[in-house]
């Protein structure tokens, strides 16, 4: 079988330092994106565990698989979870979700959790689209912009380029920075044409690094336009898979004259994490209401 350079590694993680989490209120968020699915488990809003896997052909299976990984890590079962929020484009396909919330609302909340209350602009770069989100100090969405469904400028486009050049996707960012001078960005907006252009550039004698630089630059410019349309207010944070591509992140920072906040969290879990937080908040509100009516 041919090597698949686009394949990024699936991850799962359990918080080793957290104690007594079993006694807290357990909420989960499941984010089914076009290319990846995440499940996050919180106990009283403290991060217990998460899993990030590739979205398969069947969204429902992906939801189950991601959740199963979390259960494997924690020894829990579905009935132990007090509230589950489904989010992402496949949110309606989370069979065990108590509620669905859009990824826009969830990413804002997740970024707020990860980066703190100073974050105002969030760029979510997913597999299939990009979103620029403004939120307030509580992580509530104030406005947002979303680009059209198009593989160029998104994770899927990056995967195509990885395969085309035979460069493992995790190395793209670093290698794109290994050029002395950025070549002009690849102009094609469409990944289908970008493919042709990449082929053309390679024949012209460009190095892989130069092509990657051009592609990352094009992606950054595309995203910068979206960010500008929604106005850039600091602090700024990037979520989603492409946040891991330093070549794109650095270029966005340069074009927008900002520094993106850093965190040890996996940027890909922001949506599912936000969902779990929102699930917890919702549960608390419901409990409060129930107490009032009693």
């Amino acid at each position: 079988m041919a090597e698949e350079f686009w394949r990024w590694s699936e991850t799962s993680w359990r918080n080793p330092d957290l104690e007594g989490w079993q006694k807290g209120t357990l909420t989960a968020g499941v984010d089914i994106g076009s290319t990846s699915t995440q499940a996050v488990l919180l106990s009283d809003k403290r991060l217990v565990a998460y899993a990030s896997i590739r979205t398969g052909a069947n969204s429902k299976d992906s939801a189950h698989n991601a959740m199963r990984k979390v259960f494997d890590l924690t020894g829990l079962r579905q009935e132990d979870i007090a509230f589950t929020v489904g989010t992402g484009y496949g949110r309606v396909n989370v069979p065990f979700a108590d509620k669905t919330i859009t990824e826009i609302t969830c990413h804002a909340k997740g970024a707020h959790y990860i980066y703190g209350s100073t974050v105002r602009t969030i760029l979510d770069m997913g597999g299939q689209d990009c979103k620029a989100i403004h939120c307030d100090e509580t992580g509530r969405v104030v406005s947002f912009m979303m680009n059209d469904k198009c593989a160029a400028g998104t994770g899927r486009g990056m995967e195509v380029i990885a395969d085309l050049l035979g460069v493992p996707i995790e190395e793209i960012g670093e290698r794109s920075l290994q050029v002395e001078k950025d070549p002009p960005p690849i102009t094609s907006q469409c990944v289908v044409f970008a493919k042709t252009e990449v082929g053309h550039l390679m024949r012209e004698g460009w190095t892989k690094e130069q092509v990657l630089a051009a592609y990352c630059e094009a992606m950054a410019e595309r995203v910068a336009r979206l960010l500008r349309q929604n106005e850039m207010v600091e602090d700024f944070a990037i979520t989603g898979g492409i946040a891991k591509n330093i070549g794109v992140v650095k270029r966005i920072e340069r074009l927008m004259h900002v520094k993106a906040l850093q965190s040890d969290y996996d940027s890909q879990i922001a949506g599912a994490l936000g969902g779990a937080v929102l699930g917890y908040d919702l549960l608390q509100r419901r409990k409060k209401r129930a107490r009032k009516t009693e």
Binding site: L177, K181, R254, L255
Partner: peptide, 10 residues
């Protein structure tokens, strides 16, 4: 990376 290409906001 070409840092001279920044769109200086002044």
């Amino acid at each position: 990376m070409n840092d001279t290409k920044t769109n200086e906001i002044h």
